[in-house]
Design a protein around this nucleic acid. Structure first.
Length: 536
RNA sequence: CGGGGUGUAGCGCAGUUGGCUAGCGCGCCACGUUCGGGACGUGGAGGCCGAAGGUUCGAGUCCUUUCACCCCGACCA
């Protein structure tokens, strides 16, 4: 963008008359071509795209991409976002798949209130400390006409006796409810999930990655024993990991967090971490073993088989619309989004190439027929029969939206009985006979899904390093990536490294043969390497 | 909450030391020519310049306040 502005102002200075001309665009293009031929293409639209792609700042690229790909936009409300239909369709697919996985592991859905009495939040000490700084608070329940005549004001007489907190997470209100549900060991386990929105008043927000309000699911389970709860914690983080791999085509590391990075109120936090293309890590999901902390705070006890009272063991686990951010940042390229077929709202787009109304109608009819054949296989198809944009425009637009497969048919194909098939992940095009349509598309769905995963895995492997010297670490962390390093296990060292390098311990990887060594910072003994990275 | 930046047509942006009826590109509408990778011509519609005060004969431009958004930090999923 800076280039554009620069040459634009030059043009103004040196050739003001040209600017007045309707042909400004063309002159501008020629000027640009002379100065900067390597970025040049023959169309002004592509030129703007080339410039945009040279934008150094990844955050801007990401935001721009999300907006341009029609996924989301900033709302009028501070820090919130509007998820647009195309983006929401992706979320719905994620939801459906996750929900199926939850049901398969014995969970049921329920719904708990949006508002939490302030007193609930303060029951669990660490939990309060973790969330108190970022809560939206409801203090009144009524508005009235402004006595000064200017719109509405809060009615001071409608002040709530106890303020209500808009849930930042639902542990407290759920455990307050579970107290009534649990009397005996026969009532356990309770395996509930809720799909909901939560609000965390973050200082700084970013579309999908950190918004003030976000959609998520939160599972809250209650168990009779610590072992059972721990097993549940483990099971659910594995559900997330396999979902990430199989559906999102996103390779993740699984492991526990360090004590510093743990969820507020948890005894143990397991997480999945993914590597984004700019080398930063993204926590994509968490599963917490809460011990008996919330049961004690809300006095939830059960009679065991011997008739003795015990506190209940708890877990909670969640993933959010942040997964959408992960999806965008892990797979996209300079042409836009790259969606894995399993999450693409449109899996195959059909684009006619024609001149004249007659050709248009015959080719569209032909494509509609192809569409029907694909729909019979359960594939989501979109026929782009708009006649106000040309085919080339449609090609780039659907690439921007990440549609995995594009089928184009023109008069030539119609005559030869062929179709042009293009895949989004590799941008390859081939002309094939129409006869093999079903097999080819099904194979492509499969191949693209796998290829996207392989690409992301390859990227992660190439950007995962074992480092032993702290000097080298400080240098290499600038380039991003996962760093496997020895750490002495103390929060002090962890904090110092964070302060000096902005890198945090993302997780402690679980390996069959943990090799001991010496902490890269202090030289003290270390049981195994941990994963350091700069994170979102 | 600290530092920096931006608010002017649906989108992206010009607008000079205050001055005439606020401009340009894309998009949109109409007609025509086009159509195998972001088409072109002609004509047209679309704005109380983020909001509120103030200075002035006169404010997009200067001053004050305020709101929103973006980027970099701190905080977090």
């Amino acid at each position: 963008m800076h280039l554009l502005i620069f040459y634009w102002s030059k043009l103004r200075t040196f050739a003001p008359n040209i600017i007045k001309s309707k042909k400004k665009n063309k002159f501008f293009y020629y000027l640009f071509k002379n100065k900067c031929s390597k970025y040049c293409t023959s169309k002004t639209g592509s030129m703007a795209k080339e410039i945009r792609n040279r934008e150094d700042n990844y955050s801007e690229w990401y935001n721009n991409l999300v907006i341009k790909a029609d996924l989301a936009e900033n709302s009028a409300v501070r820090g919130c976002m509007v998820i647009k239909p195309y983006g929401y369709a992706i979320w719905e697919k994620m939801q459906a798949d996750l929900d199926r996985r939850f049901k398969e592991t014995g969970h049921v859905n329920a719904y708990f209130p949006l508002f939490i009495p302030k007193s609930f939040l303060s029951r669990e000490a660490e939990h309060v400390e973790g969330f108190a700084k970022e809560c939206a608070v409801v203090t009144h329940h009524r508005l009235m006409a402004d006595p000064g005549g200017k719109g509405l004001v809060v009615d001071p007489s409608a002040r709530l006796e106890e303020e209500l907190i808009v849930r930042p997470t639902s542990e407290t209100i759920i455990w307050n409810t579970y107290r009534n549900w649990i009397k005996s060991y026969r009532d356990l386990p309770i395996l509930c999930n809720q799909w909901a929105n939560v609000v965390r008043w973050e200082m700084r927000t970013r579309l999908f990655l950190r918004t003030a309000e976000f959609l998520w699911q939160e599972g809250h389970t209650a168990h009779a024993t610590a072992q059972e709860a721990m097993a549940e914690t483990r099971k659910m983080v594995e559900v997330y990991a396999s979902f990430a791999k199989e559906v999102m085509a996103l390779p993740v590391w699984i492991g526990p967090k360090t004590a510093t990075e743990r969820f507020a109120g948890a005894v143990e936090t397991l997480c999945i971490e993914a590597l984004m293309q700019d080398g930063k890590a993204l926590q994509a999901g968490t599963s917490h073993f809460l011990g008996q902390n919330f049961a004690r705070a809300f006095d939830v006890q059960f009679a065991n088989s011997e008739g003795k009272l015990e506190y209940v063991w708890a877990t909670s686990w969640g993933v959010s619309t942040r997964l959408m951010g992960a999806l965008v940042m892990a797979h996209s390229d300079n042409n836009g989004l790259v969606l894995p077929p399993k999450l693409a709202p449109v899996q195959v787009v059909l684009v006619p190439i024609y001149k004249g109304e007659e050709e248009r109608s015959s080719i569209c009819a032909h494509l509609a027929n192809i569409g029907t054949r694909l729909q019979a296989l359960g594939i989501t198809v979109k026929l782009d029969d708009r006649d106000n944009v040309r085919s080339g425009f449609k090609f780039s637009e659907w690439e921007l939206k990440g549609v995995p497969v594009r089928i184009a048919v023109g008069p030539r194909d119609l005559a030869n009985g062929t179709i042009e098939v293009a895949r989004r992940d590799t941008l390859e095009k081939q002309i094939v006979p129409l006869g093999g349509l079903e097999d080819l598309v099904q194979k492509l769905m499969h191949d693209i899904q796998n290829n996207i995963y392989d690409k992301a895995l390859d990227f992660r492997n190439k950007n995962t390093f074992e480092i032993n010297s702290y000097d080298e670490f400080r240098e290499r962390i600038e380039e991003g990536g996962f760093f496997l390093c020895h750490w002495d296990g103390t929060p002090e060292t962890e904090a110092r490294i964070k302060e000096e390098t902005k890198a945090t311990i993302r997780l402690i990887p679980e390996r069959e043969d943990p090799r001991p060594g010496n902490c890269m910072y202090t030289g003290k003994p270390s049981a195994q390497r941990v994963v350091f990275a700069r994170a979102y």
